[in-house]
Amino acid sequence: MIRFSNVTKRFDNGTEALKDISFQVKKSEFLFLTGHSGAGKSTILSLISAHETPTEGEVRISGLRLQQLKSKDVPRLRRKLGIVFQDFRLLENRTAAENVAFALEVTGARTDTIPGKVMRVLTQVGLASKARAFPQQLSGGEQQRVAIARALVNDPPIFLADEPTGNLDERAARSVFKLLRHIHAGGTSVIMATHNLDLVRRHEYRTVELKQGELVYDSAYDSVEELDPA
């Protein structure tokens, strides 16, 4: 479903964030993306969401080459992606429900369908009772679940989470992770960038590890040599 072929990403300042990366993610797969800070995890996610374009190589989603995407087609891609970050990115002046509704309003959903959809996802993340709370009135874990609800509301087939538990205590981290597993169980592909190795070790999901922009381990192959038959 998602395929990186020999992707190199060099930023304008010369930083080489990714070096000749190739891997693919199948439909309905759960993937951990691990590595130290600065290894290139976020860069991989922003290539998938077309926030960045590769310097060399190509990224394809369902066969579609992202570099060829016209800027007016990017919104259509983003609607197929649910994306959450370490810092939640909620709007402080809107309630939980309004933050979720925002994603529907700005993508032109029919007004009368919005409240129902909002309540459905808020229930799904266990926050129906906090629908009218503002972000400051919520704990970090709750805020992240609101962000997840917002990312889910357009029923995306691919879910990208960039260190979603990075700002959370252990309990909150576990509940957020549980939620991601539920989302995966529903048939959604999930890519989660994290350096919470505890979490990674405790679950039998495929793991791809990056080190200074290079792919150094993929549990699907067990060794890097197998990865690179050519």
Binding site: P75, L81, R89, L91, A103, V106, T107, G108, A151
Partner: peptide, 16 residues
Amino acid sequence: EEIAIMRLVGATNGFI
């Protein structure tokens, strides 16, 4: 911030 979120969830440029 708001515009970035609009972009993130797939609002069109015209809409923004």
